[in-house]
Design a protein around this nucleic acid. Structure first.
Lengths: 189, 189
DNA sequence: GATGGTATTGACCACCCTGGTCAACGCCAG
DNA sequence: CTGGCGTTGACCAGGGTGGTCAATACCATC
């Protein structure tokens, strides 16, 4: 999965795979028919794993949108730390045109399920009343995405271990509170 | 630049370059010593071009932060439309470890200059008073980044021509107004 | 028309890496 | 001792790599 994540299917090298896995070329082709067969197994495994973990990601508790986004972001963070290879590989599945249609469909329904749960059972009354909640939710989402993007870039450019990622996350608390002040009604304290 | 942008220096192919450029292999090595020489010339050209255009990007007018971010985003959009190859290539320069240090330094100062101008001569008094403007500015920035990221992804996944990009941009006006309502003081209008 | 230098071509090179094969062998239960 | 599963790595043809170079098209000058 690591090799595929870094190079995509076409440019992934079976030689590098066996070298990094500490096994011989023969073994790879003893257990797998060919490179594509291996790729399919990787996809299947990753999708199974993610499907199995989706319900943990997004609970449908009664909560505000900002709180939920924060919870989801934390879940993603935890999942990424526990399964970095799968996380990186998932992005390839999503983007690469080399992925069989069957899997693309599966991923699509998986994501639709995710977004459905994301907006399910929210307490929208916490939002300030002078703007439509849909507008506010998109703004909040973009803010989270932008933050995640910045954190990701920092991770790539500097050599970052996970402690830094946590510290970075703690810093975000200030901004979380600020967002609540800005997007929610005054009258709760 | 297109080839380098898509594959980085290492995996860029001189054969593909000459094929796509409609020239012969010989010409490439008549005008350039080797692949690296060509790469350096590309970087140098791109940096020159961007430096030359930086001042147009960010004027230092007296304005609110949201208005400035909107102006910068539009400038980027225009620049991207006029010079898509340079825009794509710039990202490679920034990320790739294969870029000579000398150019990295140049890019760094270029970006520092950019961020300096970005915060220069702003009217911070427009921001609501109950939260520090630094906090609010970062939130606004993340929102813009997140939005840009979404637009970019849409562009990649669907086949998008520039008309769609413009339409997408127009849609953002609603959110711009919402942001002003949220982040700025009430008492003006 | 001849000359000569510049611009241009693409076949060609040695090299490296590719996905995949296969004869050989280690190992161990029966 | 046997037989079969698990494992190895040398080996293959094919294709792509960055780079070379003898041949030639072009064209201003004499």
């Amino acid at each position: 999965m690591q090799e595929f994540a870094e190079n995509g299917f076409g440019k992934a090298s079976t030689n590098r795979i066996v070298k990094n896995a500490g096994m011989s070329k023969g073994m790879l082709y003893y257990y797998f028919e060919n490179k594509e067969d291996l790729f399919r197994d990787c996809i299947s495994y990753a999708l199974d794993h993610m499907e199995q973990n989706l319900e943990d990601w997004i609970g449908t508790e009664q909560e505000g949108f900002i709180e939920r986004m924060a919870r989801i972001a934390e879940s993603k963070r935890i999942y990424f730390r526990q399964h970095p290879e799968i996380s990186a590989f998932a992005a390839v599945i999503f983007l690469s045109p080399e992925v069989p249609l069957f899997f693309k469909e599966r991923l699509k329904t998986l994501m639709e399920e995710g977004t459905r749960k994301m907006f399910d059972g929210l307490d929208l009354s916490r939002f300030r009343g002078d703007l439509p909640p849909e507008t506010l939710m998109r703004l909040v989402q973009w803010t989270f995405d932008g933050y995640a993007r910045e954190a990701e870039e920092r991770m790539k450019s500097e050599g970052v271990d996970f402690k830094d990622l946590d510290r970075y996350w703690d810093e975000f608390d200030v901004y979380l509170e600020a967002m609540k002040t800005i997007y929610y009604k005054w009258d709760r304290s």
